[in-house]
Design a protein around this nucleic acid. Structure first.
Lengths: 158, 158
DNA sequence: CCTATAACCGACCGCTTCAGTAGGATTTAG
DNA sequence: CTAAATCCTACTGAAGCGGTCGGTTATAGG
């Protein structure tokens, strides 16, 4: 498996938040219920999302979480990276702040690391897929939620 | 990390075999030495490659491993899959024999799984990168090996 | 003020995988 | 016969995964 359920659950959580009109915060427990996921585990995941600046929280009664910016401006590479950590195909594969790709085995004399070409291509494929997908797309793809905000019900004739 | 060192080591091993003219088998110990990898660990990896039909072995003294087919005909998706197992972005994500993509959460009523769109794209990006790369490309990219078969030394003027 | 509801935080736990080691059995060239 | 090699199984320490638990803080409503 390329990713763990942290990415799966976390993305589902983000979609759930993205469904909400905007101003009203959504409680984790309601997300846990509608997605049938353990609340206490979601707490860990949402903490990562918050630290990454993707969601904001309001504490106390009637509190909950909201998207930090509109769903159209949230690309999934940021979301997945917040949840899973740096996305690289291989341990020896860091991309530096300035966008370069490094491989720890580069010092093997002058010859290039045999696998670098392959991992670079894989890296490219993944990041392209992730950064080319916005949260808004997923929200629309998922359709209306379990909760009852059924305006313009998708799937039925207008 | 998307992949473990099993893929890294295994690919390096394949490249090492791909460097050889063809008929003479390469012993694992020589691969282990030139790639500076633990021999006994390579044994596990090469077993997977052999079971996947990517390499053939000859036992006994002067034995070793050879590619089962020319490097141009070996695509890296087969190699990585042999080493890492089924390549899917997410646990709930199987591709059936007939090429379809399945998601375990499909039964959540009639609405599609929110994350399916995302994982499908990631899957596509990865498999495209892997299946679009042949072992021959990597062998050429890596340049001449540590062993002394220096005909047409790359990097020096002809 | 009290209480219910919520976000926060850290410790813990069983399980699986990873990376590697160890020891042996079998095959084969010289 | 012996050295070199593949082959096979079992084991191990460390880390991550998926999840639980208990407790602290903050806040809206009565």
């Amino acid at each position: 498996m390329l990713f763990s359920t942290k990415a799966e659950y976390g993305v589902r959580l983000m979609v759930e938040l993205g469904r909400e009109p905007g101003s009203t915060p959504v409680s984790l427990s309601s997300v846990a219920e509608s997605e049938r996921l353990p609340l206490s585990y979601l707490e860990h995941l949402v903490a990562k999302l918050r630290k990454a600046g993707l969601v904001t929280s309001t504490r106390g009664a009637h509190g909950g979480y909201r998207l930090a910016k509109p769903a159209e401006e949230i690309t999934m590479d940021a979301v997945v990276e917040a949840l899973e950590g740096q996305i690289a195909p291989m341990e020896c594969f860091h991309d530096t702040p300035d966008g370069k790709v490094l491989c720890s085995h580069e010092d093997d004399g002058d010859r290039a690391c045999a696998t670098k070409l392959l991992w670079t291509r894989v890296q490219g494929g993944v990041t392209k897929a992730l950064s080319g997908t916005t949260l808004a797309e997923l929200v629309e793809f998922a359709g209306p939620g379990v909760r009852g905000e059924r305006q313009t019900p998708v799937g039925t004739a207008a």
